[in-house]
């Protein structure tokens, strides 16, 4: 089961849309576990939040062995600097682990029109599928139409697809099947 935990106030409609999309993508039940406080310890001097630390310090929720917890926040995240620079952080996940984090900071503003809300929801769904995919051991995909394509890729359209491609879907299905207790 996927348990969604919000670390900031989010619209109920957005969470409902997200739950439905996650269920459709992974075939696993999804439930909103409520809102929790954002761990302030993860904040860095520059005002951004350390993605690794935020996920590690995120408040625990009651979950069973195979449950995955998805945290959603709206603060700017930062990744550790790599040899060629710092990759943009849209979220973080524990590869093959049990928790993932998504930030809506880099999304286009939600706005008030139906179209902008739709785009916002689709992006939230895409990033959630992407980071939950890592939790199920998926790697990045070269196909820009797949949700596992890197979020910052220049080949990604403004309003990207939020489905997995065949290879990633089959791989995630295998993992989920194996994980069932």
């Amino acid at each position: 089961m996927i348990r969604i935990v919000t670390l900031a106030p989010f619209d109920a409609g957005d969470i409902t849309f997200l739950s439905k999309t996650l269920y459709r993508s992974f075939g696993v039940g999804t439930e909103h576990q409520g809102e929790r406080a954002l761990p302030r310890k993860a904040e860095r001097p520059d005002g951004r939040f350390d993605a690794l630390k935020l996920l590690a310090d995120a408040p625990a929720v009651r979950a069973y062995a195979d449950d995955k917890v998805l945290y959603i926040c709206d603060v700017e995240l930062a990744n550790p600097k790599g040899p060629l620079g710092e990759p943009p952080a849209w979220g973080h996940a524990l590869q093959g682990g049990d928790r993932a984090l998504v930030s809506t900071f880099r999304f286009k503003p939600r706005g008030v029109t139906e179209a902008s809300i739709e785009i916002y929801r689709r992006r939230l769904a895409r990033e959630s599928i992407h980071h939950l995919g890592h939790v199920w051991d998926l790697h990045h995909c070269y196909d820009a139409r797949c949700a596992m394509h890197p979020s910052w890729s220049p080949s990604l359209p403004d309003d990207p697809e939020f489905d997995l491609d065949t290879f990633c879907r089959e791989k995630s299905e295998r993992r989920i099947r194996l994980a069932k207790t």
Binding site: L52, N79, P80, G82, P83, L84, G85, P87, A89, H92, A93, L94, Q95, H134, H139, H140, P150, W152, S153
Partner: peptide, 9 residues
Amino acid sequence: VIAEDYIDF
């Protein structure tokens, strides 16, 4: 996940 981000970056 961070190592993979570095690769794709």
